[in-house]
Design a binder for these strands. Structure first.
Length: 439
RNA sequence: GCCCUGGUGGUGUAGGGGCUAUCAUGCAGGCCUGUCGAGCCUGCGACUCGGGUUCAAAUCCCGGCCAGGGCGCCA
């Protein structure tokens, strides 16, 4: 039998239990992190959102009934404790709580699927199977507090620049955009697909007079990739701005990244300490390396790469060795970029596309877009696609489409750069990869 | 999808044709009034699945599933 909450409410979080409130009565609520029963004295470590407080129960100072109730507690059960804050040099952090009342709110089954005290580490697969318990570890929840702060910063920054947040459909009819594999779904009597990118919708919004838009939403890619930096469902931070070019887009992206890093460092220092990551605020401007220059750099360290081909993984790694932190690669060949990318007016074999890299990881890619209807149709045809299936998209270019540019930034890959994590799965609560569809 | 490596108690591991299957953590019980990776004693708990080879398979072989690493794919 467990107790009910009734009108009992938490007064403090563990973090707030310091010597500043000694002798005060507090009500703490949380999970039992560890129990140490020494016979005549029991130590209960109560863990809540971002801290752990020691509940100290000496048999001679509390009632026999309460003492016996405390002795029966099990790891990871949920409790509420009313007690008095006491200073003690012998307690962790110099303070402890002497209990006066205990409520057992929810009992935990034992043994646990993994060790929340991290004495024995668990593999990522085991952790993801029991993600709700894995997230009880402060070293894991810290990642998501950092990700949350990053997303807040991005929204604040874009709102401060007068961007409008939009929502575009994630279900669509098109299977003909080319490129990545799509997930087919059943849409009543028809086949439909999950959205791979809000790209075409963002561009249609450029013809709407909104000028500056952004969307933070999931995108789905049905590629059978199986790496530490790919997932089949990720969050894309997508931005599009009218009356601007790719240089403006890069400048905006650079400012947004620096702002987010600065905010994370300012508001998440505890979390960064918890995961043991020394986050550095990058210097601006980020280095901008021409594609051709990048190919030469890669070749000069003995990694073969042809001019005109997309970066093989070995080339990314080579660049990661040479470069430190964030940098842009610009002037990509038109032939390896999608149809909506604007060719360089000086040299149409090159494009106004850029990638933002962090060492060996591509975290964003963007471009100035084609806004001329006829050129766009021509480019769609050149990529072996049928312009007819882009009717609704192409119509937006026929009645006054301003020049525009934008980018998509991978929220999880960006989080990897903010936490130093090497496995993208660590940055998603419930990741979806080639094999994992639950929980 | 390809290549390499692996799958042993709840968790993390050692071992590698015949043994009572190693260790840590955990769990259960006991002792202990200052623990903080508490300590001590007793106990519990495992060879990924299917097929094959063999007198005998956790161990060798084949396949499935899953995982780790690498690559490819990623308009």
């Amino acid at each position: 039998m467990t107790d009910s909450l009734k009108n009992c409410r938490r007064t403090h979080y563990s973090k707030q239990v310091t010597s500043d409130i000694k002798d005060e009565e507090v009500v703490l609520m949380g999970w039992i992190h560890e129990m140490r029963d020494l016979g005549g004295i029991i130590f209960v470590l109560l863990r809540d959102r971002d801290g752990v407080t020691q509940i100290t129960a000496p048999s001679k100072k509390i009632s026999t009934e309460l003492f016996e109730d405390l002795r029966k507690l099990k790891k990871e059960s949920v409790i509420a404790v009313r007690g008095k804050v006491q200073e003690s040099g012998k307690a962790p952090g110099g303070v402890e709580v002497i209990p006066e009342e205990l409520k057992l709110l929810s009992e935990s089954k034992l043994p646990l699927p993994l060790d929340t005290t991290e004495k024995t580490r668990a593999e990522i697969d085991t952790r993801l199977d029991s993600r709700f318990i894995d997230l009880r570890k402060h070293s894991v929840s810290a990642i998501f507090k950092i990700k949350s702060r990053m997303l807040h910063s991005v929204r604040n920054f874009l709102e401060s620049q007068d961007y409008t947040e939009i929502n575009t459909p994630k279900i669509g009819a098109s299977a003909t955009e080319g490129g990545t594999e799509l997930f087919p779904i059943t849409y009543f009597e028809r086949e439909a697909f999950l959205g791979q990118s809000p790209q075409l919708y963002k561009q249609m919004m450029m013809a709407s007079g909104f000028d500056s838009v952004y969307e933070i939403a999931p995108i789905f890619r049905a590629e059978e990739h199986d790496t530490l930096r790919h997932l089949n469902e990720v969050t894309s931070i997508d931005v599009e701005t009218a009356f601007t070019d790719h240089i403006d887009a890069m400048n905006l992206l650079e400012r947004l990244v620096v702002d987010a890093v600065t905010q994370v460092k300012k508001y998440c220092q505890d979390e960064l300490d918890t995961i043991g990551f020394d986050l550095q605020i990058p210097k601006t401007p980020f280095p901008r390396i021409e594609y051709d220059e990048m190919v030469d750099m890669v070749n000069s360290v003995g990694v073969h790469m042809e001019h005109g081909e997309d970066m093989p993984r070995a080339a990314e790694k080579a660049m990661g060795e040479i470069m430190d932190g964030y940098y842009f690669i610009t002037g990509w060949p038109t032939s390896i970029k999608p149809f909506y990318v604007m060719p360089d007016p000086e040299n149409p074999l090159k494009s106004c596309a850029f990638d933002l890299m962090f060492q060996d990881l591509e975290i964003s890619s963007g471009a100035m877009r084609v806004h001329d209807h006829d050129l766009l149709v021509e480019k769609i045809k050149k990529q072996g696609l049928n312009p007819d299936s882009f009717n609704r998209y192409l119509a937006a270019f026929e009645y006054g489409m301003p020049p525009h540019a934008g980018w998509g930034l991978g929220a999880e890959r960006f989080t990897m750069t903010l936490t130093g994590l090497k496995n993208i799965r660590e940055t998603v609560l419930f990741p979806r990869d080639r094999r994992r569809l639950t929980p």
